[in-house]
Structures are given as structure tokens and as C-alpha cells.
């Protein structure tokens, strides 16, 4: 009983090791480096000096063609979920979102969002150029254009993680995007591990 703390310390050490070892492996085991543009719209938080700033991965607001019927079934959505796609009447509740792998390629227009180039239930299904990360696929209400109707659609709700940690010096450089004349900065280098992890490698 006097050594009861040992169990707690063992849990803390094992859990921290289980989190940090994959990070170490991802950073040192053939990570892909992707050059990306960061625009002011990509920044999350940081509206006051005490509010931390993170780098978001905003997704393109257009239908994801890769999310066809077969792919949605493969991800685990039921027929009852799928028949609601395209419906404009309000749903009582959305089906639970599902984990997926997605390949992201950055678009080169003015706001430079990330386009979902491929979706799959396994990492190998989406291999190709761009960043391969984990994401959540959902069937929910969506508006494709400001004028368009609200309708039920299959979407990539968010990436996992949805935003990236920025060290303070990098955050300070990116914060200038909000006040300066240039609204985008390039190239910000992102690291993309073989396990789907993603991080900010460098900021010019």
C-alpha cells in the first residue's frame, strides 16, 4: 500500500511513451514534406495576445466526388443513411460520422483551401501526391453555394487533427497575415508522417 504511487507512475510513463514514440517514428521515418500556402483564413484563434494561434486545414467547400455510393458503403454507412442524400427536408439526426483516410491537395486559387482528392477506409486506398491524413466523413446538411438550397450531402467534416500546433515564433510570423497587405504566405512546410500524422515543419 505504501507503494501505491508506483501503479500511477507506471500508467503515466507508459501512456506518455505510447504517445511520443509514434511521434518520434513519424518525424524520423520517411515523412513526406509538403510545401503549402497559408492564408489569413487558415489561421484559427489568435485574436488577442493571450489567445493561441493554430494552423487550420480548411477543406474545399465543394462536393467531394470521391465520396460516391460505393465508397460510402465501404466506410460503413447504411442504405437508410444513403437514401437521405440530396434530400432538402430537415433530418432529425445525422448518422454518426465515420473515420476515413483522405488525400489532400491544395488548390491554387485566392483562398487556397485543401481539396479532397481521394477518400478510403485504408491508407493504401488513397496513396498519391499530396498529404494523406485521417478524417471524419459525415452525412449532414450542407450548402454548396450561398444561393443554393440546404440539402443532405456526404462530406468530409474535418481532418484529424483539424488544426496544427504552431510554436510561438511561427505563430508570430503568421499572425502578420491578418494585418499586412499580403494575405497569403508561401511556402510553409508541412510534415506528413506515414501514420497520417501532420505537423508544421517550418515557416519562412
Amino acid at each position: 500500500m505504501t507503494r501505491g504511487w508506483l501503479g500511477a507512475v507506471a500508467v503515466a510513463v507508459i501512456v506518455n511513451a505510447a504517445m511520443l514514440l509514434p511521434v518520434y517514428r513519424a518525424h524520423n521515418g520517411g515523412a513526406r514534406i509538403v510545401d503549402a500556402a497559408v492564408c489569413s483564413d487558415h489561421l484559427m484563434g489568435g485574436y488577442s495576445q493571450t489567445d493561441r494561434i493554430r494552423l487550420g486545414l480548411p477543406l474545399d467547400h465543394v462536393p467531394v466526388t470521391a465520396l460516391d455510393h460505393a465508397r460510402l458503403v465501404e466506410l460503413g454507412f447504411s442504405d437508410a443513411d444513403l437514401v437521405q442524400i440530396g434530400d432538402t427536408t430537415p433530418m432529425r439526426r445525422f448518422p454518426p460520422s465515420r473515420p476515413a483516410w483522405v488525400r489532400l491537395v491544395q488548390r491554387t486559387d485566392s483562398t487556397q483551401p485543401w481539396r479532397v482528392a481521394a477518400v478510403g477506409s485504408r491508407r493504401d486506398d488513397v496513396a498519391g501526391t499530396g498529404m494523406v491524413v485521417r478524417a471524419r466523413v459525415a452525412i449532414e446538411h450542407w450548402v454548396w453555394t450561398p444561393e443554393g438550397p440546404v440539402r443532405v450531402a456526404a462530406t468530409v467534416r474535418r481532418t484529424e487533427p483539424a488544426s496544427l500546433y504552431l510554436r510561438d515564433d511561427r505563430a508570430a510570423r503568421l499572425r502578420t497575415l491578418r494585418v499586412g497587405p499580403s494575405r497569403c504566405i508561401t511556402p510553409v512546410r508541412l510534415g506528413n508522417g506515414t501514420d497520417g500524422s501532420v505537423w508544421v515543419e517550418s515557416v519562412p
Partner: peptide, 11 residues
């Protein structure tokens, strides 16, 4: 756990 998860962008 929260901070380490945030630092390394863990899911």
C-alpha cells in the same frame, strides 16, 4: 495528455 496531444497534433 491534452497538451502533448495538442503539441504533436495527435488525433
Amino acid at each position: 495528455l491534452i497538451v502533448v496531444g495538442s503539441l504533436f497534433n495527435l488525433p
